[in-house]
Every structure is written in C-alpha cells, then in structure tokens.
C-alpha cells in the first residue's frame, strides 16, 4: 500500500463551533475512500480544508510525501487534487467543452505574449486542450452535448460534466462531494460505473456521500465523521456494524437531535 494522502490531526473552528477536531486519516493510492456521517458532521468542511478553500486551525495534510499548502486552492490542484461540489458549480456561460477546457488551465502554460502572437506552442497547446476536453466528455459519456451551454444540460449530465472538468486537471486524487445527491436510481448506478472506471484508470477517489448503499457498494474503506470527530474507519462491512456509527446515524442517547 502506498500512502497518497494523510490528514494529521486536522481541526477547524468557526467562532465557537468546532466543525472538525483532530481528524486523522490515510488514503492509499488506487482506492475509493468513503467519508460519511450525518448532516453537519463536518464532511464538507473537511473537503474545504483539504482543497484549500479554508485554512485549518490545527493539523496538516501530507500528499505524496509533501505538505499541502493551506488556503491556496490553485496550488492544491496543481499538486494533484481535484474536487466537485455538493451543489453543482459549473461556469454557466460556457459550453460543456469549454468548461472542461477551463479545468485544464493549471496544466497549460501559454502566456499573454504567446496568445497575442498565436505562436506555434500556443496553437499546439490549444489544440491539445480542445482534444483532451473532448476525450473527457466522451469518457463521462456526454460528448454529444459538447457545444451545449452547460446550464441547459440535465441534472445528471451536469454532474458528469463537473467530474469531467475535475479530471481535466489531471488529478491523482479526485474528491467528490455527494455526487449522487438528487439523482434517481438509474443515474446513481451509472455514476457508480463511472467512479469504478475512474479508479480503474488509476485515479484515487475520495467520496463524500449520503447514500449509504452507494458508499458501501463502492468504497474500499470508509471513515465516519460525527460532530467533527472521526468515530470509525474500516472496510464497509465492519463499519456498518460499528455501534458508535449506528447510534450516530439513528440518534443514540448521547447526541439527541
């Protein structure tokens, strides 16, 4: 097992509210790692701290053996972590293809001078970006909508597009924030196939999900957050039987909702 990402004692507070406290976990290369927990358990906060949207109050992340910069999202992407959002966030005035091309930004180099003069390098890079974006649309199965303005896509297709856009940054770790939210059963099972394909192609996946069935069927290992603390981490079958987890989900005596 090769460690890809390690969270070491990560904590985050908002005013008096502790959203995350002392969360440590390790994600290995090539696995699908699930992060679950009841509403407000701190899953999305964990995502935001990991991807640099928030600065953690304690702890750090080590990715591929180097510490991740905090509070600098673009550097995190450059290191090889890409994310999607719980409530889809696409670039509304661009086509599907252009959204994915924008996702490739960090892997391209052309400067203003190259763009103004349209030198050979810039033209070649632009061609590659376009082709690669189209490939990715094919990969997630929506290439027929390449030139459709993204806000006109169906909900499920928007989800797929967001994943394609994230993949365009050539990540080693793809972090998906509730990708199945709002999907029907067919769409969810298609999504499952896609995520398995992504893992098969060598990208490690971190999955936040509400849909316990999806998580249990897809993930190699699962961590459970409750009130900002990690209360369990193991293979799905074991986690499922963990009493702390059951009481967190069903509302045990300690945390009445």
């Amino acid at each position: 097992m090769i460690k890809l990402l390690e969270a070491r004692g990560v904590g985050k507070r908002f005013g008096g509210l502790t959203a995350l406290s002392d969360v440590s976990l390790t994600i290995n290369k090539g696995e699908v790692y699930g992060l679950i927990g009841p509403n407000g358990a701190g899953k999305t906060t964990f995502f935001n701290v990991l991807t640099g949207a928030y600065i953690p109050d304690d702890g750090e992340f080590v990715f591929n053996g180097t510490e991740l910069p905090s509070g600098k999202p673009h550097l995190v992407v450059e290191q090889g972590i890409a994310r999607t959002f719980q409530n889809i966030r696409l670039f509304g005035q661009m086509t599907a293809l252009e959204n994915v091309m924008a996702g490739h930004h960090i892997r391209t180099k052309a400067g203003v001078w190259g763009i103004l003069t349209q030198n050979k390098h810039t033209r070649e890079e632009e061609r590659l970006t376009t082709e690669r974006a189209y490939e990715l649309l094919k990969y997630v199965g929506i290439e027929r909508f390449a030139h459709t303005i993204c806000k006109n896509l169906s909900y499920g297709d928007q989800r797929r597009l967001e994943i394609a856009r994230a993949l365009a940054s050539e990540p080693q770790l793809l972090a998906l924030d509730e990708p199945a939210a709002g999907m029907n059963a067919t769409e969810t099972s298609q999504l499952k196939v896609l995520i398995e394909q992504i893992r098969h192609d060598g990208v490690t996946v971190l999955l936040i999900e509400h849909d316990v069935k999806l998580v249990m069927g897809l993930c190699d290992r699962v961590a459970v957050l409750d009130f900002g603390k990690k209360i369990a981490e193991d293979v799905p079958a074991v986690v499922q039987k963990n009493e702390a987890v059951i009481s967190a989900y069903l509302g045990g005596p300690k945390h009445a909702h």
Binding site: T51, P73, V77, R89, F91, G92, A166
Partner: peptide, 15 residues
C-alpha cells in the same frame, strides 16, 4: 470567464 461565472469553482479547478 470561469472566475466571472463562479469564483469559488474557478479557484477549485486551479485558477
């Protein structure tokens, strides 16, 4: 354009 349409998402894709 990405930044204009959604600044947070633009940051999240590495801009």
């Amino acid at each position: 354009a990405a930044m204009r349409d959604d600044e947070l998402a633009a940051k999240a894709i590495g801009i």
